[in-house]
Design a protein around this nucleic acid. Structure first.
Lengths: 199, 199
DNA sequence: AAGTCAACACGGCACGTGCCGTTCCGCTAT
DNA sequence: ATAGCGGAACGGCACGTGCCGTGTTGACTT
């Protein structure tokens, strides 16, 4: 039976998503076409269009279906060490092949398609942020952070430089770079001696 | 003579670039087609393809032809105040209509087209970085920055959160947010009491 | 100095290709 | 019977490339 007509819906859906990732890795997201996905997956285009409203939605679902990103925070009591650990893991996962290029493409697509942006935030970035903020909150309660700090601002300070490095500067994200950013975000770039008093 | 054949090359080039920006604002970068630019500019597609290898290159040239971004640093002696001033100006220019959406689209295109990325870095982002770094260096020499600091890292710490806010969090860039980021980057998110030695 | 002309750039048109999103058809498992 | 499927075909759009007739330009002739 070379045909898959009538097989279980979930199987068909999985096959399409797997093919999407496969083709995405081969030709890149930009050149990925629904037509090609349908052809390789042995599916009708209609079957794809029935389930996903856009290429971006299909791609997002496909990526999230991997469900790998169980990026949970360690909690050793040392917030800087835990952040390093966590960010190293995230970097390993999201900035290197095979997932890196795909995740990056998804960020690009999110810029162009508000629906994808919303879904991405809701289903991936948001939850990750919450985990980070929860961990930061605990640290703040333990006096490891400036007490009056807006935690979502801290989030941005910690994440921004990495996105900057990848998306704008287009430089590789090394562990050393991660460590330097974390250290600097904690210490600040101001002079070591307090600003207020004479330095 | 409704025809522009043989008129000066620079005029034709300008007309095409102006039309590109115009159409870009109307339909957005994604739906911008060279065909439409040619039609509205009263130009042949060849004339466009002859000068620009890609839609991205045309768009980049068109944006840079505005030549507005003379974002030069003030130097009042107070690095934090100068950074605020400078970043406020940059934010006003690059995150609000009419240029904001176009600049954002250019960043997106740079993700997909390495040639555009390189040109963008070389002709816009790079020079701006250099100005910032030069100003930071002066501040460091005056003792307003931690003395052993890598200035390009400071660059990333200062820029990253803003790109994050726009591209990832998709939130508006307010002056208040800018001020909070700058303050935090200087002070650090660590506890107020100095970690290293007694202040 | 005035006239001439080949080279060049141009606008416009048409072509073949690729992918879009949709529609129809025949098949198959339920 | 019905609903979902694979597959084929559709019209539409934009791509990038040829070709054509036309206008401008600058070097050469007179």
């Amino acid at each position: 039976m070379a045909d898959k007509r009538g097989s279980r819906v979930a199987d068909r859906t999985d096959a399409i998503m797997r093919t999407t990732l496969e083709l995405g890795q081969e030709v890149g997201y930009a050149k990925l076409s629904i037509e090609a996905v349908a052809a390789r997956a042995g599916a009708g285009k209609h079957t794809i269009y029935r389930r996903w409203p856009s290429k971006g939605a299909l791609f997002l679902d496909s990526l999230l279906s991997l469900n790998e990103p169980e990026l949970n925070y360690p909690d050793t009591g040392d917030i800087e060490a835990d952040l390093r650990e966590q960010i190293h893991a995230a970097v390993d996962l999201l900035s290197k092949p095979p997932l890196g290029p795909l995740y990056q493409a998804l960020l690009v697509e999110a810029q162009q398609d508000p629906q994808v942006a919303e879904a991405l935030n809701e289903r991936f970035i948001g939850p990750q942020e919450e985990k980070t903020i929860a961990r930061l909150r605990k640290a703040r309660d333990q006096g490891q952070l400036s007490s009056d700090f807006d935690l979502s601002l801290a989030m941005a300070l910690l994440s921004g430089p990495f996105y900057f490095q990848v998306l704008i500067a287009r430089q590789p994200l090394t562990r050393e770079y991660v460590d330097r950013v974390i250290e600097a975000v904690f210490a600040g770039i101001g002079p070591k001696a307090p600003k207020t008093a004479g330095g």
